[in-house]
């Protein structure tokens, strides 16, 4: 592992703050695409946005599940100090580069503590604010459109099931290259 270890953030505090701001903005305006300035030297298949979001959000108190292979797991554990878990249900953050685990396999929080739910970080091929998904709900005045290339088949139905759990439920961060967009659990999704 040591021989392949690469660097994380150049400036951990400022880089994480910038990314946190972008995630905040993305969550507040579901479906609006944010861009990450410069990502860390993350091992493949982690793209700049997914890697930056993980380094920003994960720490020793957040178990992470990921399907990105042992090199990415070692890199993340080294820089974020987070425990890596084998079962998606134990994760605070789940990162999927391939087919994600079904949303109902992730921890949705409890009625008393809905904030203890998992966030799914889903790396997809492409994101753009044109065509594609029709998003409505809190944070959206009329409708936002979000084109998501590479979302898993049947995701819309899975998301509808997730929305029905409210106030419990999974929040979603979509990453593609240096772009990210988010769907909090309150967002309604229709395939355009």
């Amino acid at each position: 592992m040591s021989a392949t270890l690469t660097a994380g953030f150049a400036d951990p505090a400022l880089d994480a703050q910038r990314c946190f701001r972008a995630v905040l903005e993305a969550m507040a305006r579901p479906g609006r695409v944010q861009r990450i300035a410069a990502g860390p030297e993350a091992p493949p298949p982690l793209g700049p946005a997914a890697a930056t979001v993980l380094l920003t959000l994960a720490d020793a108190d957040t178990p992470v599940w990921l399907d990105a292979g042992p090199q990415a797991a070692a890199w993340l554990r080294f820089h974020a100090g987070c425990p890596i878990v084998a079962a998606p249900g134990e994760a605070g953050f789940a990162l999927a580069c391939g087919a994600p685990p079904p949303l109902h396999d992730l921890a949705p929080g409890s009625e008393e503590e809905p904030q203890r739910s998992a966030t799914l970080i889903l790396q997809v091929a492409f994101l753009a604010e044109e065509g594609g998904w029709r998003l409505t709900g809190p944070g959206i005045e009329h409708e936002h459109r979000l084109r998501v290339d590479g979302a898993p088949p049947g995701f819309a139905a899975d998301w509808a099931g997730n929305r029905a759990l409210f106030p419990r439920g999974i929040d979603l961060i979509l990453c593609a290259g240096d772009r990210l967009a988010a769907l909090p659990r309150t967002t309604r999704l229709e395939i355009g």
Partner: peptide, 8 residues
């Protein structure tokens, strides 16, 4: 050398 993490 290159810094991988820290000093922090």
């Amino acid at each position: 050398h290159r810094r991988l993490r820290g000093p922090e």
